[in-house]
Design a protein around this nucleic acid. Structure first.
Length: 806
DNA sequence: ATAATAGTTCTTTTT
DNA sequence: GAACTATTAT
């Protein structure tokens, strides 16, 4: 993403390149010097530019060394972009700054200081799935479901407590000991905490909370960082939670004279930093945010942090950026109208000088697929008229909405990529391979060890595992030792052999881990365990895809080693765990981006499709019961709208398939908040409802699809046995549109080498009959341009489109 | 110990 | 529709 700053009327050709082209408010935000500064930056107001120029200014004037700057961003991607843009402005002078996310910065600090409080620097990080797995074990052991406790309740509550900086001790003091459920939860919390400590692991929330704990418990440690960071800048401040807020508070605290003396004795340079009392004054703090874009309350983000900033940090300067350099006035009018329905907000009105622009386009489909087809058609049309695919994005509220979109996009030969969602690293086989790496990096972690114990199958079942656990408990030794001493467990010779050889493999690889490159460690583990070998030998076609995924992981480690020649296994594991959905964005060349509204924050596109604008989806059903839920959902909608530069499309469906069943959907309440004259409805909710004169293409399609005629011709021409052909055909008859649900194996339908040329007549599941106008592309990417009798012109990917020659 | 089958429950958003 | 659980049969 790039934010282009238009020269404003007020700012003229001042000589300073850092403020050239800025409006007066932006200029002030770059140049203001003081203890604390709040920049209230409306969507598209050029805040990234302001922030980078502010940093560049500090460096260029020698007010700060790079090492004295700490900038916190929301994603690693944003951090990388900021670093790049600062480098662009000041060149080499920017090296040594800390620009990272809260989590990455805390990992960096914790790795250095872990030994201060009972961890080693090789700690691992548990992602949400890992901590859920751990909680699951604990709940089962305690029979907690008897009291109605679930894993998601427990993990949600623990996360919330940690975000509030509560630990087991402080929580135990505030509960009602007569409520067995609360007592049970406390026990779960206690065991969870103990297990993490034993495993030498932190969960996501710990990374922040434990850093705060570290600073509070060890003032001399905190003093080092307070001395070091003189300028702290925080982006997306409205999304900070209490723990993150506290971290900032700790970092900006002044250092008392006696601690400065201690630093000095430790060899740190402090002389010119001391103030009158001999201490070091607190770092200067700049925060940037927009309370209208606060969308992470569910994760503990506290909007009060930004609203009450002036109270928290007295004598703060506040600068308001309201001029928008991104969107057309029509889009901004819609955004302003929507957000003004949130009553408890500070007044703010975005404006632009670029003009009204096109109207917002609205569309109501009969089904989610119909809606997706609309999106695909509009994208094709935009592409034809010169908009690059990479400048278009499709947003949705829930990840499950991708299914229909992907299916239609594949058929329509629209190149796309999904950001976030079921990520590469969440796949079971990747988690398996990663667990091998974790056991080598952090032998204390029993969770990872359990995961790989019987993967691939070695005949080590639950019974064997409990036997080992029992040995470990009685000998007060880690699980790994139980494996090394498998012969003492009194198990069968086959199992014993399997255990000892796994233990040997892990020990052998571990011995090389300090020096060997990451990809060699991984390859050794894969070769030694037979992980890929077993998958390759399987008849299940999905296993082949899984094997390829693991190969891909090896490639990733090679790439990592190339980019970080000194990178250790721990560095690799950390990086992988902390990547965010939007971090994946890098080479989006030539593809449409699909993502949730949450990952869309901070990005911008020429054309934006906001899909599923329905009640129970946006606002989401779950938000209704939460305090502040509907307002937060409205902000989410607002965030989506304001991502668009030129074109905005709002779409919804009359019916939506959710968890198997088809439900009737109602238009979102937020649609009515947009002035009618701003929207040009291609098919309004009313029109779709009446099923009257407008072309009911989806209904046509249904009838066509159900006539049973299509099943007569084989469409799987190669690679599949007759059994799978039958199944595919049967499935196609009843539910033709769910064929692509399985993305592990790629596309199930395969027209193979179907020959088509201009003039042929074909029949399509959705669009009925039509005539081929042209065929372009080669091989698997052959595309047919078809003029359908009822549905107009479409482009189809021949290989996978549900079509037949007639 | 494992593979296959049938039944269950749920899904918001994410570092 | 998927992911997990419980119950079978091998």
């Amino acid at each position: 993403m790039t934010i282009v700053l238009e020269p404003s009327d007020a700012a003229g050709g001042s000589g300073d390149p850092l403020t050239a082209g800025l409006n007066p408010q932006q200029k002030e935000a770059v140049e203001y010097r003081g203890q604390s500064l709040l920049i209230v930056a409306g969507a598209g107001s050029g805040k990234t530019s302001v922030l980078t120029r502010r940093i560049a200014g500090l460096l260029a004037t020698r007010e700060a060394w790079p090492s004295q700057i700490l900038a916190i961003t929301f994603t690693n991607k944003a951090a990388a972009e900021m670093r790049e843009r600062v480098a662009h402005l000041v060149g080499q002078a920017g090296e040594g700054m800390w620009i990272s996310t809260f989590h990455s910065a805390c990992v960096r600090i914790l790795r250095r200081e872990a030994e201060q409080f009972g961890f080693t620097k090789s700690f691992t990080i548990y992602d949400s799935a890992d901590s859920r797995a751990l909680l699951k074990r604990i709940l089962k052991e305690l029979d907690a479901d008897q009291l109605g406790l679930t894993v998601s309740m427990a993990s949600g509550k623990i996360s919330k407590l940690k975000n509030e900086l509560s630990d087991v001790e402080s929580y135990s003091r505030q509960i009602n000991m007569n409520d067995p459920q609360e007592v049970m939860f406390l026990e779960i919390f206690r065991q969870y905490t103990r297990e993490l400590q034993r495993a030498n692991a932190f969960d996501f929330d710990d990374l922040i909370a434990q850093t705060v704990y570290l600073f509070r418990a060890f003032p001399h440690v905190a003093a080092q960082y307070q001395r070091r960071f003189r300028h702290i800048l925080v982006d997306e401040y409205q999304d900070t939670n209490h723990a993150q807020y506290s971290l900032i508070r700790e970092l900006t605290r002044p250092v008392q004279a006696d601690l400065v003396d201690e630093l000095e004795r430790g060899g740190q340079f402090v002389q010119s930093m001391r103030d009158g009392s001999g201490g070091i004054p607190g770092a200067s703090l700049t925060v940037v945010g927009d309370s209208d874009q606060s969308i992470y309350a569910f994760r503990g983000a506290d909007i009060r942090n930004i609203v009450e900033f002036e109270r928290d940090f007295p004598n703060s300067k506040v600068i308001l950026l309201e001029q928008n350099y991104r969107s057309t006035q029509n889009i901004l009018d819609a955004a302003n109208a929507v957000i003004s329905n949130n009553f408890d907000r500070q007044a703010k009105n975005l404006f632009t000088t670029v003009g009204a622009g096109s109207k917002i386009v609205g569309f109501t489909g009969y089904t989610g697929h119909d809606e997706a087809q609309f999106v695909a058609d509009e994208i094709a049309a935009l592409h034809e008229s010169g908009t690059d695919y990479k400048d278009m994005a499709v947003f949705y509220r829930t990840n499950s909405q991708t299914r229909a979109l992907e299916e239609i996009f594949i058929r329509s030969a629209i190149p796309y990529r999904v950001l976030g969602g079921t990520k590469f690293y969440e796949r079971a086989e990747i988690k398996d391979a990663m667990a091998y790496l974790i056991t080598v990096a952090n032998p204390a972690d029993p969770l990872a060890l359990r995961r790989i114990m019987n993967v691939p199958k070695r005949g080590i079942g639950p019974a064997t595992e409990t036997a080992m656990q029992r040995w470990a408990d009685t000998n007060e030794a880690p699980l790994r030792d139980a494996m090394r001493n498998a012969d003492q467990l009194g198990l069968g010779p086959k199992v014993t052999g399997a255990i000892t050889s796994l233990a040997k493999l892990l020990d052998d690889v571990q011995a090389t881990a300090a020096t060997a490159p990451v990809h060699e460690i991984l390859s050794a583990l894969i070769a030694g365990s037979g992980l890929v070998e077993v998958l390759r030998a399987s008849r299940d076609p999905q296993d082949e895809a899984r094997a390829e995924n693991i190969d891909e992981l090896v490639a990733v480690t090679k790439e990592f080693q190339k980019n970080n020649p000194d990178g250790t296994l721990l560095d690799f594991l950390t990086e992988v765990t902390l990547v965010a959905a939007a971090d994946d964005l890098d080479d989006t060349s030539g593809t449409v981006s699909l993502m949730t509204l949450h990952t869309a924050k901070g990005l911008e596109y020429e054309a934006v499709f906001l899909t599923g604008v329905e009640e129970d989806l946006l606002p989401h059903r779950m938000s209704a019961s939460e305090p502040g839920g509907p307002s937060e959902e409205r902000r989410l909608f607002y965030v989506g709208i304001t991502r668009a530069r030129q074109r905005l499309f709002l779409s919804l469906a009359m019916t939506r398939a959710q968890f198997g069943e088809v439900n009737v959907a109602m238009p979102s309440r937020y649609l009515q908040e947009i002035p009618v004259e701003l929207i040009d409805w291609k098919q309004s909710p009313g029109m779709a409802n009446s099923r009257g004169g407008t072309q009911p293409r989806a209904l046509n399609a249904r009838r066509e699809g159900g006539d049973g005629n299509r099943g007569a011709t084989p469409r799987a021409s190669g690679g599949y046995g007759s059994g799978s052909y039958d199944r595919a055909t049967a499935a196609a008859k009843t539910k033709p549109k769910t064929e692509w649900a399985n993305r592990v194996t790629g596309t199930v339908r395969d027209n193979g080498d179907m020959e088509l040329e201009a003039g042929d007549r074909i029949s399509h599941v959705d669009f009925g009959e039509g005539r081929v106008m042209a065929v372009t592309g080669i091989g698997a990417r052959r595309i047919a341009e078809v003029l359908f009798d009822g549905a107009g012109r479409k482009k189809l990917l021949i290989k996978v489109a549900p079509i037949e020659k007639i």
